[in-house]
Amino acid sequence: MKIHPNCPTPMLILFLFFQLLAITISCQNIASYNSSQLISEGNGEYDFFYLVQQWQVSLCNLRPCQKPAIPTFSINGFRPSSHGISSCKIGTSFDSSKMLDLKNELDREWPSLEVEENEEMWKKEWESHGICSQPLLTQHSFFETALKLKQNFDLFTILANRGIFPFGEVYDLENISNAIRDATGHTPQVECQSYKNIPLLSNIFLCFQYNRNAIHIVDCPLIRRCNFQAILFPYSQFGPS
């Protein structure tokens, strides 16, 4: 068959086809990446927020506390994260005067057990992690959002509804994770820390994305934060670490 000189050759057609395919795939990937981002402005781009809730009793078994531990979950952190990494250095300095209407609730739900002044810990949390969320969240809305999410996702009640209570019992790690997943529709991360070779339930991580001015719970990355199959859910302190 004679090929007309002005017609593209089969090899050229094949080459152009693959070029077009590569461009299409690239555009699809870019669109998918942009739509999945939680924060695309400020100091960096982040996939989600971690809301970290700590079991106070475990914390004070593991290290010295300046205040008595209460058998409850309290906020340990609210952190923009990209694949588990979050660190920002530039942003608005912490201003306690912007928090006056939240202070009572923050004292109750986000206390510092290791230092006397709660504001010292809030300042550190904002300047280490909170500023990463600017300009999406102001300082006030950053702390207010964390408080609302903790209220909406009451871990104590979620676990109690599945018969998991802090009575010093040992529970299967998977059962704890499944109880939270069944209640929220999404997979958490459950962390344990060892006290004299006894693994204690220490922190529970929930993950959230911020889309269209609303924040939604999502599956957390599959990061293992406990290397034990069963962990203790303590009710009270049983001595210094």
Rank of each mutant, 00 (worst) to 15 (best):
V52R: 02
E109R: 13
Y195V: 09
E120V: 10
L159S: 01
E144P: 03
A183C: 05
G91Q: 00
L136E: 11
E116V: 12
Y210E: 05
I70F: 14
L59I: 11
W126I: 06
I90A: 06
S35D: 12
N152E: 15
T187P: 05
K98Y: 04
L20G: 15
L21K: 08
H4L: 15
S93A: 12
E127A: 11
V190R: 00
E45F: 08
S97Y: 05
F94Q: 09
T92N: 14
S202T: 14
R212I: 02
K103G: 09
I85R: 09
R63S: 14
F205Y: 03
K123M: 11
G168C: 08
E125M: 06
W110Q: 12
I223D: 09
A31S: 12
P111E: 00
D47V: 06
D101V: 03
T157E: 10
P8E: 09
C65K: 04
F143N: 00
E119G: 10
K67M: 06
G84R: 01
W110T: 04
P71F: 00
E169N: 15
I90N: 10
E116L: 13
K89A: 14
P5E: 12
Y210T: 04
G168F: 00
C226H: 00
Y46P: 03
G168M: 02
E120S: 14
F208G: 05
P240E: 14
G42K: 01
P111G: 13
M1S: 15
I30D: 08
L136V: 14
F238S: 09
F208D: 06
N213Y: 05
Q237D: 11
I217Y: 04
T184L: 06
V52H: 01
I215G: 00
W126L: 05
L206C: 10
E120T: 15
W126F: 09
W122K: 05
N76T: 06
L200G: 02
N203Y: 05
L20Y: 09
S202I: 04
F228N: 08
N6H: 13
R224K: 11
I215L: 07
T145E: 06
L206W: 00
N213K: 11
E144T: 06
L100D: 13
M11E: 10
P68R: 03
Y50W: 07
L149K: 11
L113Q: 03
D219P: 04
P80D: 02
P199C: 08
C65L: 02
L201R: 08
N152V: 13
G91K: 00
I198D: 06
P5S: 13
F18R: 13
E125L: 12
Q54T: 13
L113K: 03
M121A: 10
I204S: 01
C27D: 07
K150P: 01
C7N: 12
L147W: 02
N104E: 14
L149M: 13
F143P: 01
I131E: 02
S35K: 10
C192H: 00
S74L: 07
C226A: 05
L222Q: 07
I223E: 12
V115W: 01
Q37S: 07
F156G: 01
L14G: 02
W110I: 05
P5M: 11
T157S: 13
F165P: 04
M1E: 15
L106R: 07
R79E: 10
L106P: 03
V52G: 03
T72Q: 15
D95Y: 07
